[in-house]
Each structure stands twice: as structure tokens, then as C-alpha cells.
Computed example of a mutant assay.
Amino acid sequence: MFAGRTALVTGAASGIGRAIAVSLAERGAALALADIDEAGLAATRGLLRPGTHATLHPIDLADKDAIAALPGAVMAEHRSVDLLFNVAGVAIGGSFEQVDANDFDWLMEINFFGTVRMVRAFLPVLRQASEAQVVNISSIYGIISPPGQAAYSASKFAVRGFSNALRHELRRTSIGVSVVHPGGVATEIANSARLPTGVDEEETARQLARMNRMLKMPASKAAEIIVEGVAKRRSRILVGTDAKVAAVLERLMPVSYMKTLDWLMRRAS
């Protein structure tokens, strides 16, 4: 599935994106690695299997012109792109009323519109492959919507809906679409989240500590689940028991699941 093929991975400078890049390299894939963090990209390349053909593409996914120019830069270094992994994402803490409108828009530009623009830019390239796959990272918060996650959850539900519609539109083509819902994966996304001004620091620290306790799965394990799911061309990939539980609860109790989730989280803490 991966040997001799080229995968473009956004968010490759750290976390799940980096772990996916390492996993794909172990399977013989060539890589185009994209992220705003140039030093992180270089560090990721240093972790890859020796001999891996990997190119680095620093990019701000909030910059639509940079995304439009990316296929040309990638194709100048690779013969094809067969797999597109849209992993890059950002987070914001605070309730809807606390989050500044500009910060809300910033998050949507990266998490949702960055994904949409990457797909739009690379679909013509993917159509040239005998078999291609688009892999869009949503979240457990693209299944459930807890308080304090209005912006992030909105973006991840949008990724989910976009991916599902895209899959139906491409069903008679050689391009498959996978949407991924990771649960609590041990990355730095919580620690690097933007925080609204004026939020109580002690309460923020408590929420951050609680969030980090929930982020247990190593990124390397999450990446293996994702890559194996992509190898099987699964349409929906749930990563972790928490994501699977959330999916079941949302299906059984689409309105009232938060009561049960609150109880489960209190027990876990």
C-alpha cells in the first residue's frame, strides 16, 4: 500500500503528524512534510528511516496563496502524490463568549479551511494516481461537543461533514476518503492552545491539568492505528477507546450524552 508511493503530511513537525510520517517511512513511502515549524520539520526528517526520500515544505495553512502554490513545489520534488494526510490543527481554550472573534476565525482558517484548501489544491494531483487516499483528521470533538470547545468542535464537525460528502462525491473514482477521530492522544495541542484574555489563571491551570490527564495514548500508537486504517481504506477511523465510547454514547444519547460523559470523566480523574 505505501512502498514506492508518496504521502504529503501536514502538521508533520510534531505530534500525530510526525508519528504518521515516521510510520509511513518505515513502510517505504516517500514523504512531503508540511508545517509552519521549520525546525520541527527538520527534526522529523532526522527521525525517518535512512534512505527515505523526504522533502520539507514550511507553510502557514492559514495562507490560502501558499496552499495554492504547494502542489507545484511538491511535484518539483516528487513524481506523484498518492496520499494526502491533513493532520495540522490548532486549539483555543475558553467558552464561546470568552473566545475573541478573530481567534475563532484563525482556528477555522487552519483546522477547516486549511483542510478544504489542501484537498482542493491536490485533487488534480491525486487523480493522476492509480489509487489515492485523502485522510482528514477530525477529533473525538467531531463526534461530541463538550463545553469550552465551541470553536474547536465546530471546526472538527466541519471536517467530518466535509469528508463524508467528499467521499460520496468521489465514490466512483480511484480516490478514497478517510476521516479520523482521535481521542486522548499525548500531544502538545492542549499546552499550545490559545487562551482568551482575562480568563482566571488558576481555573485555566486546573482545566489544562485535567485535559493532559486525558491525553494518554502515545502519538506513535495513534499513528499506527491511523496508518493501518488507511491501508485498509477505512472510511472512518476511531483512535482509542475513548473515541469509540464517545461514538456509541452520541449515537444512543445524541442530546443527553454529556451527563454520562461528565460522570465518566469524574471517575477517571
Rank of each mutant, 00 (worst) to 15 (best):
I144F: 00
I175L: 10
S145F: 05
V119Y: 00
S174E: 13
S174A: 15
S155W: 10
A121I: 01
F157E: 04
R120P: 04
A121N: 11
A154G: 15
S155K: 12
A132C: 09
S130T: 09
Y141P: 01
S163F: 06
V125W: 12
G148A: 07
Q149V: 00
H168Y: 04
F157G: 03
F122C: 06
A154C: 13
G148M: 07
Y152W: 00
L126H: 11
S145G: 03
R172I: 02
I137D: 00
Q128L: 15
I144T: 10
A165L: 12
S145C: 01
A150H: 05
A132P: 02
S130V: 04
F122Q: 08
I143Q: 13
R172Q: 14
Y141K: 10
R171L: 15
V159D: 02
S138E: 03
N136E: 08
P147K: 09
Y141N: 14
A132F: 02
L126F: 05
S145D: 11
R127Q: 14
A158M: 10
L170C: 12
S155P: 08
R160V: 01
Q149M: 09
V125A: 14
R167C: 09
L123K: 10
T173C: 13
Y141H: 11
Q128I: 08
T173A: 14
Q133Y: 00
E169G: 07
M118H: 10
G161I: 01
A158N: 06
Q133A: 11
G161K: 02
L123G: 12
A150S: 15
P146G: 00
S139D: 05
Q128V: 03
A150C: 13
R167Y: 05
A150R: 07
